[in-house]
Structures are given as structure tokens and as C-alpha cells.
Design a protein around this nucleic acid. Structure first.
Length: 631
RNA sequence: GCCCAUGUAGCUCAGUGGUAGAGCACUCCCUUGGUAAGGGAGAGGUCACCAGUUCAAUCCUGGUCAUGGGCUCCA
């Protein structure tokens, strides 16, 4: 007698071993039709899996998250199946599930084209329609290697060879197509109805840039057509808020061929930048940082000492003068250490906190550049805290609290915390690492936030905390970081006189809240879809006249507003008010101040908020208060 | 850096082996209009750059640069 317990706590008994599918059918025909896989004692299995003992069983359907993953995984197989039918010479490699879909990498004599994609997608639909059963077979490792070699699938054979010889492997067969796979899979190809191939790209075999480039086909797959449509709609919406598109549309910045990876900030973009920078400058002032400024170009010897010349020479812009080599700084810390090194430091001065809006240049690979998000010339809200080991924890704690406040002010409430611990390659004793990691960990724990640990992801000189923020459409961006560094201060000769009159090397905490200002502004633009809050908006209000009769009144009002520190423009053009309102609405200006004869005679303004909000007629004083509140 | 795609007016995009097209924006004229596009006219391009094929290249071929989607990388 086998007793099977279902998620609702009920049980069913069977005389003989049964398959998951049979249990589903036993529960109901509807469930059987919807069933994609099962979960037996927490393990995902195929519907065909036999149960010969007492277990907990859940039937996975398209309503479960796991069901969606299984559909995507099986759709990747469907893709490979179609490719093998259309291009028999193509070799299959791997095809995992990713966020919103899947991909499959192929090796073929030429890359697939968008036209190929159409053909493949069509063939996938045909195979789905034929509703092939997807069956599982088991094979020994060596047998599997021989099998795939026999099929001419060298990559698959290579993957299997890296699996221990003792393992048994599962193969999935649908029609003529067989693939190595852990599974589980949908019971038949007919379950795969909602999918779309999206694009092709190159990808290195096994993710190593020394290896050959494969053709990767990306696709999306869903259990319901509406879900896919909603996803495609979300993609379109994301495209509309792309900072490159909005940067052009709102006249914020541009990038041109002569300066790849460097940004030309236009007046409006620079106004936004300045709003961000001035805010952060105040944050420095209010939190015990001293703002400094260091040279852009420093002698090679300094970069040799810091270790950058050795590790990152290829990625540094260099220049030469009178037989001396210089590098344009790729980071600010060596400069900050030079400032620290002037004079003799006492333990009484620590912690010393330096902040800089440091302009850095890194010669990033051309293929990695991306709008203002990944550039070669960037500016960080970079700060370095020189402190003793005992001060690390309290410094980290107050930094985290500061960062939370800053993100909140910019409109980001959802932050993810990650602690990256010691990597294989590192400097410093285990004792110091223990101390540094526990200091960061304790600081995180004392704030009460949940955090993930990324083992081995720390920098070579110390552990770090990464701060990821979630934007309004659910994407996460790593912006802030704080890193404990036990290496560079010593390499660059930083020291202080301790209480016992001994010379000690300070610990340096590298920290940034926004990270690259270029990138952070890009994130702000996308987060707000260009409709920035008043305090950040390049143009906070436009005063628009109904007719030329109000020009004088409007100009005077604009001047008054400017004197009060607001960023305001006048629109005195000989155009109808509808035309003006449309233009400024598309420019996402927070407030449009309409003045006609009525307003002139009553010394008032008619205010229209962004998003067609009619705020009615108010006095000029009420307008000042309104703007003041949001600035 | 690697793979693929793309590069035409300020912007968004059509198009063709034989003197280059639209909409919006811009300039001028008419219009003075009350909450998301009034009307008319005009100006605007070495079709990314460099070679090659051709009687003729924006179009075909090759190269370079840049951008986009990925991969790799990100101190």
C-alpha cells in the first residue's frame, strides 16, 4: 500500500506503484490535462515518474512558478529540436531558462539570421502541433558520451565528459530529437504553445572569451498568451523610458563618435546633474565628510605602487610628457591617500572622511559601452574613510543609514543588501579578514535588514557590501558599495601615530552611494520615465502666455521665480495655448503656469500640474509656496 | 575585445545602380487663439568615413569608425 499526501494535507492510497500522471488523473481529469510535472518530497520530477513508496506529492501545473520554468526549459528543447531539423549540421550545446524566457546556444558554420529565426519559430510551432511525447531515458556517463559522439554532438559529449563517470544521466526524447537534460520536462510538445524567438547574439562556449563564439538564440515563453502579450508590452514600455531615447527627446545629453563612452551634457541635463551633485555635496557636509579635489593625471609610479599599473594597464588611458608616463586616473583612492599622507596623522583625528566628485576615466572595451550607463569617462560620489580597525563597524553602520536616507530622497525604497566575502585570490591574513567580514556583517545585522552573502565575491583587498536598488519597473541596479581595504593604505605609505606612539597603517573604507553619477542619472531618468520630481527637474515650470498681451506680466513673473531660485522658462511664442501645453507636457515639465488677461488683471496664475492635473487659479504667493514645498 | 545587426535632414523613419523623400522640429507670413498639434510658404542632406567594382555607387564588394542587442570584463 502506497500513501500519497497532497499539498492540502489529504492523502490517497494506491495498491501498486503509480506514476505522477496517474495520481493526477485519479484526482481529476482537469488536473491531468493541466499537469506539467510533479514535486515528490520536494524534488521536481516528470509526470511519468513512478512512485513506489509513501511520499508528499504536488502536481505542478501552469499556475505554479515551477510550471512556468518547466515550460520555458522545454521550449528551449523545442527550439533545439527545430534547429536540428532545419540545420542538421548545427550542434547543440546548452539551453537554460533565464528571466522571462530561455536561450539555446548552437555551434553552426554561420550565425543564424533574423530570417532563420522566423523559420525556426515556425518549425517550433509545427513540432508543438504534432504533440510528440517527451520521454525520459537513463544512460551511464560513458555510454552517453559515446552516444552523443555518435550523433556528431561534440559539445554535448564534452559537457558529459566533465560529469563524474559514476553518474547516471537522463536523456529526453521528443520525436527524432534527443537531448541530455536533468529535466523535468512537459509530457508532450503540445503543451508548448506560447513562445516567441526574440533575438540572436554571440556567446562564448562555456562563457570563456578564449573559446569559440557560438550562436545564441533568445526566446520568451509563457503558459498563457495574455502573459506573453503583457511581457511584450512591458518591453515596449521599458523601451519608451530608455534613458538614451529620453536623453535625446528631453535634450539632456548626447554622445558622439569623436568621444565614445563620454557624455556631452546639455544645459538641461547639466541642471539635473547639478541638482544631484549639490544634494550630495550637502550630504557630505552634513555627515562629517570633507570635500577634496585631486589631479586627473598622475605619474605611472603611483599606479605601480597601488597595483593598478600591473592589473589594469590595458584599461587605463595613458599619456606621456618629457619621457614620463602618466595615467588619467581610473579611480580616486590613490589621490585621497596622498592628501591623507600630508603631515603627520594622529589617531585622535580618525576617522578622517574625504569625499570627492571624482572624475575618472577607464578605457572600457568598446563592446561594453551603453548610453550613460556604461561609459569611459565618469564621475563618482567617491569617498574614503581612514579609520582604525575598531572603527570599521560604526562607520559602516552610519554609512548604511546614510545611504538609506539618500536613496529614499531619490525615490528608491526597495534596497537589496549583499555581503561579498573573501575571494580565493586575496591579500591579508585570515585574522584580518575574519575581523573585517564580521565588522561588515555586524553592521548589516544591527540595521536589521535582510542581506544575502556572496561567498568569494569580495575584492582582493577586502570584503564589501553591495547595495542594489529596485526601480519603478522592477529592475535592480547596483549603485552603492562600501569596501574595507587593508592593502592600499600600506602600499601607498599611509600611517598614523597611535595612542602608544607606534606608527600604524589605517584601514581605508572605499564607499560610494550613487556610484557613477552618469549611470545614476541614467537610472533616475528610467525610474521616473523622464518625469523627474520638481527638485530634480531641469525645468521646474514654464510660464506660458495665452496671447501677446500677457508678455510683460509673464516675463516679470519668470524673473521673480528665477530670483527665488527656481528653474523656470517663459513660453511667449505666437502659438495657441493648446500647442504650448502639448509641447511642455511632452517635455515632462512639472508645472505649466498659464497666464491670460484674467490672470493679469487679478494678479494670479492658472497652474497645471504634470499629468493633466488642473490646480486651478492661485495667487503668485501660493505658486511660490507650491514650488518651494517640492524643491 | 568577440559575434550579429544597424548608420539617409536637428528628430523619427521611407527609398533607389542613373541629380534624394515623408512627418515632426526650424525660419518667414497669416492668425491673438483659454488647458495636449490653427493655416500657408520656405530653408535644410558629400545618404558615417576610406578604398574597390561600374560609363555611373547612397544602393554592390572590402576595410575603418560609431551605435544597438548579446558574450567577456567592470579595480
Amino acid at each position: 500500500m502506497i500513501t500519497i499526501r497532497l499539498p492540502d494535507g489529504s492523502t490517497r492510497s494506491f495498491e501498486n506503484p503509480v506514476t505522477v500522471a496517474q495520481v493526477a488523473a485519479n484526482i481529476g481529469a482537469g488536473l491531468m490535462r493541466a499537469a506539467l510535472a510533479g514535486r515528490v518530497d520536494g524534488q521536481l520530477v516528470d509526470l511519468s515518474t513512478a512512485i513506489d513508496r509513501d511520499v508528499d506529492l504536488a502536481i505542478i501545473t501552469d499556475k505554479d512558478e515551477e510550471g512556468l520554468d518547466i515550460v520555458r526549459h522545454s521550449t528551449a528543447h523545442l527550439l533545439a529540436h527545430a534547429v536540428k531539423e532545419l540545420f542538421p549540421e548545427a550542434q547543440v550545446t546548452i539551453g537554460p531558462v533565464i528571466e522571462n524566457g530561455f536561450f539555446y546556444d548552437f555551434s553552426y558554420k554561420r550565425p543564424f539570421t533574423p530570417e532563420d529565426l522566423e523559420l525556426i519559430e515556425k518549425r517550433m510551432a509545427e513540432i508543438s502541433k504534432k504533440d510528440f511525447a517527451v520521454t525520459r531515458e537513463v544512460m551511464g556517463r560513458d555510454e552517453a558520451v559515446a552516444y552523443f559522439k555518435g550523433l556528431g554532438e561534440a559539445y554535448k559529449a564534452e559537457i558529459i565528459e566533465s560529469i563524474p563517470a559514476s553518474e547516471t544521466l537522463s536523456l529526453y526524447r521528443q520525436g527524432e530529437f534527443v537531448d541530455l537534460c536533468r529535466g523535468p520536462h512537459v509530457p508532450s510538445t503540445g503543451k508548448l504553445k506560447v513562445f516567441k524567438l526574440t533575438h540572436v547574439a554571440g556567446a562564448y562556449w562555456r562563457g570563456d572569451s578564449k573559446n569559440e563564439m557560438l550562436t545564441r538564440v533568445y526566446g520568451t515563453a509563457w503558459t498563457k498568451k495574455e502573459d506573453q502579450e503583457a511581457y511584450l508590452f512591458r518591453l515596449e514600455e521599458a523601451e519608451k523610458r530608455d534613458h538614451r531615447r529620453l536623453g535625446k527627446q528631453l535634450d539632456l545629453f548626447h554622445i558622439q563618435d569623436e568621444a565614445p563612452g563620454m557624455v556631452f551634457w546639455h544645459p538641461k541635463g547639466w541642471a539635473l546633474w547639478q541638482a544631484v551633485e549639490q544634494y550630495m555635496r550637502q550630504v557630505y557636509r552634513d555627515n562629517g565628510y570633507q570635500e577634496i579635489r585631486c589631479p586627473q593625471i598622475l605619474d605611472r609610479s603611483l599606479w605601480e605602487k597601488s597595483g593598478h599599473w600591473e592589473n589594469f594597464q590595458k584599461n587605463m588611458f595613458t599619456t606621456e610628457s618629457e619621457s614620463r608616463d602618466f595615467a588619467i586616473k581610473p579611480m580616486n583612492c590613490p589621490g585621497h591617500v596622498q592628501v591623507f599622507n600630508q603631515g603627520i596623522r594622529s589617531y585622535r583625528e580618525l576617522p578622517i572622511r574625504y569625499g570627492e566628485f571624482g572624475s575618472c576615466h577607464r578605457n572600457e572595451p568598446s563592446g561594453s559601452l551603453h548610453g550613460v550607463m556604461r561609459v569611459r569617462g565618469f564621475t563618482q560620489d567617491d569617498g574614503h574613510i581612514f579609520c582604525t580597525e575598531d572603527q570599521i563597524q560604526s562607520e559602516v553602520l552610519s554609512f548604511i543609514q546614510l545611504l538609506q536616507k539618500v536613496y529614499k530622497d531619490f525615490g528608491f525604497e526597495d534596497i537589496q543588501y549583499k555581503l561579498a566575502t573573501r575571494p580565493q585570490q586575496r591579500v591579508g591574513s585570515d585574522e584580518i579578514w575574519d575581523k573585517a567580514e564580521s565588522a561588515l556583517r555586524n553592521a548589516l545585522e544591527s540595521t536589521g535588514v535582510a542581506f544575502a552573502v556572496l561567498p568569494g565575491e569580495g575584492a582582493f583587498y577586502g570584503p564589501k557590501i553591495e547595495f542594489h536598488l529596485r526601480d519603478s519597473i522592477g529592475r535592480t541596479w547596483q549603485c552603492g558599495t562600501i569596501q574595507a581595504d587593508f592593502s592600499m593604505p600600506g602600499r601607498l605609505g599611509a600611517e598614523y601615530v597611535a595612542e602608544d606612539n607606534s606608527k600604524q597603517v589605517p584601514v581605508m573604507l572605499h564607499r560610494a552611494i550613487l556610484g557613477s553619477l552618469e549611470r545614476f542619472i541614467g537610472i533616475l531618468i528610467e525610474h521616473y520615465a523622464g518625469a523627474l520630481p520638481v527638485w530634480l527637474a531641469p525645468v521646474q515650470a514654464v510660464v506660458a502666455t495665452i496671447t501677446s498681451n500677457q508678455v510683460e506680466y509673464a516675463e516679470k513673473l519668470v524673473n521673480t521665480l528665477k530670483e527665488k531660485g527656481f528653474r523656470v522658462n517663459a513660453d511667449l511664442r505666437n502659438e495657441k495655448i493648446n500647442y504650448k501645453i502639448r509641447a511642455h507636457s511632452m517635455d515632462k515639465v512639472p508645472y505649466q503656469i498659464i497666464v491670460g488677461d484674467k490672470e493679469v488683471s487679478s494678479h494670479t496664475v492658472s497652474v497645471r500640474g504634470r499629468g493633466d492635473k488642473d490646480l486651478g487659479v492661485m495667487t503668485q504667493e501660493a505658486l511660490f509656496t507650491l514650488l518651494q514645498q517640492e524643491s
